[in-house]
Design a protein around this nucleic acid. Structure first.
Lengths: 95, 95
DNA sequence: ACGGGGCACTTGTTTTTTACAAGCATCGGT
DNA sequence: ACCGATGCTTGTAAAAAACAAGTGCCCCGT
């Protein structure tokens, strides 16, 4: 399997990269991610579990039943890839 | 919609980025892509249609019923993003 | 000239993934 | 004691992907 395929094994699922993008600047809570991304709640829960299992992010307990999701070093290492993809997406496709 | 979301609109579908990666070095034919990627044939046909419509690749007619798929400039512009994702995927996740 | 094989796909059908909708447990404040 | 916010879970329906088989076309060898 190519390195790209290995990366997509973790990040290829829908919403995964968008979740990581949201967390690049600062940790966020579940409800914040939900609101800003508009992702269905069960998908969000599933992706967060998968991304945590893959070592991309971790949960920081805040108070009582609230927690924040923060990127690990491995998650932060995705910045370059996300920037590259974003700038590609920003260019208009020739019509 | 963020730029990343715009990029994923085109590239987020399964196999899309892997197809582009295969074409980075040289144009390839349908059967080559199929063999090297192991992608189901109906998915390959669908993705190639979508990627062509998005201006990422184009078909070069070869002879009779054979053609090659080649990246456009817009497709080649994905090289940085693919390299970044690949090198991320090449790192071992801390176990 | 005709038959077989490779190429580039379609066209069903099943399985997996995603979306949508609703509900549940916990805590903290009033 | 009750209400609302938060962070989920549990169904179920719709969409996407995988699997399997078949089609039309042209070329090449005999």
């Amino acid at each position: 399997m190519s390195d790209l395929a290995a990366a997509l094994e973790v990040l290829g699922a829908r919403w995964a990269l968008l979740i990581v993008e949201q967390l690049l600047d600062e940790p966020q809570r579940y409800s914040d991610l939900q609101r800003t991304l508009g992702v269905p709640t069960n998908m969000l829960a599933t992706r967060l579990r998968e991304l945590e299992a893959a070592g991309v992010l971790s949960r920081l307990p805040l108070k009582h039943n609230t927690r924040a999701y923060a990127l690990t070093d491995r998650g932060l290492a995705l910045r370059d890839a996300i920037v590259a993809l974003s700038s590609w997406g920003a260019q208009e496709a020739r019509p």
